[in-house]
Amino acid sequence: MKIFELIGISILVFLILLLEWRKLYPNQKKEKRLLVTLTAISLLLAILLLYFPEIPGPTQMISSLFFPLGKMLK
């Protein structure tokens, strides 16, 4: 179940969030929202990659977009 990796990633993400949160002033609402969004995306992506390391990623997306041009070089 890879439970230790899961706990480790969660602790890391939580630490980063805590560390950066303390640097922010109360009136920086936009920064706080971005910070939470970014760490949430990272946490989700990390868990996803932990259980499905072979999942298609940005490389496959870009490759399929530029594949017709790439044939010129073959």
Binding site: L12, I16, T39, I41, S42, L45
Partner: peptide, 11 residues
């Protein structure tokens, strides 16, 4: 930009 440096590092 300083508060988003570390979260982006993770990403």
């Amino acid at each position: 930009f300083k508060p988003i440096v570390l979260p982006f590092g993770l990403l």
